[in-house]
């Protein structure tokens, strides 16, 4: 991970490869880090964290983390917690589908318009959390 402000929020997806939910988690993360809140957020390789890489572990312990998991197994959330990370919010893609009954989001290889719509909704919710944290920090004495 690049040098960051301690307040930079780490957005960490599961990137599960078997289903579309994992791809949505990944693309939602890039929407946040590259488009919606590029100055305030970064992502972190989950596999590197799970491997126990010292820099990755330090990063999740010293930055607020938001995880985006595809399924209820919540691999990203669990691994951030195991690493002693500072988890401020965990999001599940599968929950976002509850308001998109009948959606055809695509596959684990590519998203349809429905898939991108869901990814963007998740990204906007995550960004709102990031902005809220920044606002709290600025108000705090």
């Amino acid at each position: 991970m690049m040098e960051t402000d301690k307040q930079t929020v780490l957005v960490i997806p599961c990137s599960g490869i078997g289903k579309v939910h994992g791809l949505i988690s990944r693309e939602a993360t890039y929407l946040v880090t590259d488009e919606l809140a590029p100055g305030q957020t970064q992502t972190q390789c989950l596999a590197l964290l799970v491997k126990g890489d010292a820099d990755a572990v330090t990063a999740v312990q010293s930055h607020p983390c938001i995880t985006i998991d595809g399924c209820p197994k919540a691999c990203a959330q669990k691994n951030v917690e195991i690493a002693g990370g500072t988890l401020v919010k965990s999001v599940r893609v599968v929950d976002a589908f509850k308001t998109h009954r009948g959606a055809e989001p695509g596959s684990a290889s590519g998203l349809t318009n429905d898939g991108w719509t869901i990814a963007r909704e998740i990204a906007e919710a995550v960004t709102a959390e990031v902005i809220s944290r920044i606002a709290d920090r600025e108000v705090a004495p």
Binding site: S15, I17, R26, T43, Q44, C45, L46, L48, A108, S109
Partner: peptide, 18 residues
Amino acid sequence: SCSGEEIPEGTISRLATR
């Protein structure tokens, strides 16, 4: 695949595997 989120090569590892 590692699917590393930080680098483009992680995306390539994932999509090539698929």
